[in-house]
Design a protein around this nucleic acid. Structure first.
Lengths: 158, 158
DNA sequence: GAAGCCTTGTAAGGCTGCCTGACGAACTGG
DNA sequence: CCAGTTCGTCAGGCAGCCTTACAAGGCTTC
């Protein structure tokens, strides 16, 4: 979405648009800070890997499933992260088809930096809107997204 | 973003990821319902017009500015909406360069249907999480996005 | 242990949703 | 009337995702 000023009723800006825009703003903040912290090559598209890879590495398939995108999409991101030195593909000893994606040292540093920025941003949110509100927000959105993935809030109509 | 399960601290799923995912889910819900309501051609990309066009029509430039995207992007969407009968371009009598984009009858019906769906979704949110919470959410996000657009929460670093 | 089916990752190609650059036509101020 | 600006468009490009198709390897069953 991209709605900004339109109101469905007096004083009511659609929550959809607000969610999307604020998410986008926070993304920009995150990657802007990440650039400033010395990771200028990282783009939002890389987040599906950084956000869904396990400590000791994960299979591409697992990352794809957690990120809810296709294996091909993850594979492309992984190849680029590999190319720029953030990730390595090591063969899975237990399955010769599979490769384990694992962050390199630089990759882990970037991930840590990302989480540090996220925590800073969330502290700012807590200062601005109250800790309780932010916690309630997180809880509500966790619930909503969990519902959406699982037994449907209203999608899955197609 | 696309984070789903990762936590920055025990029990803390990043708000960024939650915002983005819930926005996406609500988008899907919206356009799924819109399809079901008889507007199958409408895609999320069209929202920048539907969400930022005035009652009597608006100039492409104004829509672009409100949606915070380029005129070219809006122009493309407008052309498609025109082609499928949701929009018309009428010459601006006060400026021969400009054209006023105005929803056709069908376009307005679609817009109304969209807002009806949004209201329904928000009613559901209010039932699930409480009216007060939804209002607080809207207020906070309005504030956050307004800050982001105007005097910067943290972006504009690039 | 071979046949048939499922999974893992990849290759190829396509679409959407944006962007930048360049432009002609029209408006505006001096 | 001329310079500079603004309106919309054309052309081209790129990111981020998808679908289809496939080879290589694993799993089951007899």
């Amino acid at each position: 979405m991209s709605s900004k000023l339109i109101e469905t009723a007096p004083g009511r800006v659609p929550v959809v648009g607000l969610l999307n825009r604020s998410g986008q703003l926070m993304d920009e903040r995150l990657f802007s800070d990440l650039r400033a912290a010395g990771y200028p090559e990282l783009r939002p598209g890389h987040a599906c890997v950084f956000g869904n890879i396990g400590r000791g590495g994960s299979r591409l398939t697992d990352i794809a499933e957690r990120a809810q995108i296709t294996k091909q999409a993850v594979g492309e991101v992984a190849s680029e992260l590999e190319r720029i030195g953030y990730l390595e593909r090591i063969p899975d000893p237990t399955d010769k088809r599979a490769k384990i994606l694992r962050l390199t040292k630089r990759g882990q540093e970037a991930q840590d930096a990302g989480y540090a920025i996220i925590q800073r941003v969330e502290r700012e949110l807590a200062e601005a809107y109250g800790v309780d509100f932010v916690n309630a927000l997180r809880a509500a959105l966790e619930d909503y997204t969990a519902l959406g993935v699982g037994h449907a809030v209203g999608r899955h109509a197609a």
